[in-house]
Design a protein around this nucleic acid. Sequence first.
DNA 1: TTTTTTTACTTTGCAAACAAAAGTAAAACA
DNA 2: TGTTTTACTTTTGTTTGCAAAGTAAAAAAA
Lengths: 103, 103
Amino acid sequence: MKDLLKQINKAFDNKIRLGIMSVLVHKKSATFNEIKDLMGLTDGNLSSNASVLEEGGYIEIKKQFIKKKSNTSYHITEKGKISFKLHLDALSKIIQGKYDTKS
Amino acid sequence: MKDLLKQINKAFDNKIRLGIMSVLVHKKSATFNEIKDLMGLTDGNLSSNASVLEEGGYIEIKKQFIKKKSNTSYHITEKGKISFKLHLDALSKIIQGKYDTKS
DNA sequence: TTTTTTTACTTTGCAAACAAAAGTAAAACA
DNA sequence: TGTTTTACTTTTGTTTGCAAAGTAAAAAAA
């Protein structure tokens, strides 16, 4: 269990960032407003949590202009995919009690 | 997704408290030292997190003396069982992408 | 027997993490 | 031309988390 707890990735151990990663795993790409509306977040909350994921190299933030309007979209990185899977595996084992009760 | 995020229980949204609940769901009862060793926690860390779960009414803390030594054991409550299940259900849906991408 | 160490916890205090509010900048509208 | 809206980012006050310090009793040592 000790080892499983160490495998919990701090970047994903927050419901908002977990949600963002989940969306990007399933959708491959999403815009700022899509995620914001889907998750019911405030602008600041999404912005700062996305930054944490970007700083860790788990997602990429692409800023472009569509019809003179800025448009920010999020994409999962290869590192993000791998790390998120490892995180979910550990989480799943903790929840399902798949650890030795002796250590 | 918004609704699922609201169903995430703050008391369980922390890896240590999630781990404690997992142990107590599977074992029904465990002592301070059992959990501490199993999870590799410091005394203070276990004590304070267990208090959070107790204050929420999710676990019961029983203190007794065994051969003149104090012995603290933890047990899940009925409320704990129900609430934890609801939490895990929401978590699982978020992870598996079981939400409408339109809201 | 007193003193020191160990066991079994709880409380405190400081650092890190959150989230709402405030701020910025450009476009659209009136 | 100003003022409102859109699309974000940054700041700031609060909450949370965790290690270290504290407490108290038993056991071991001296």
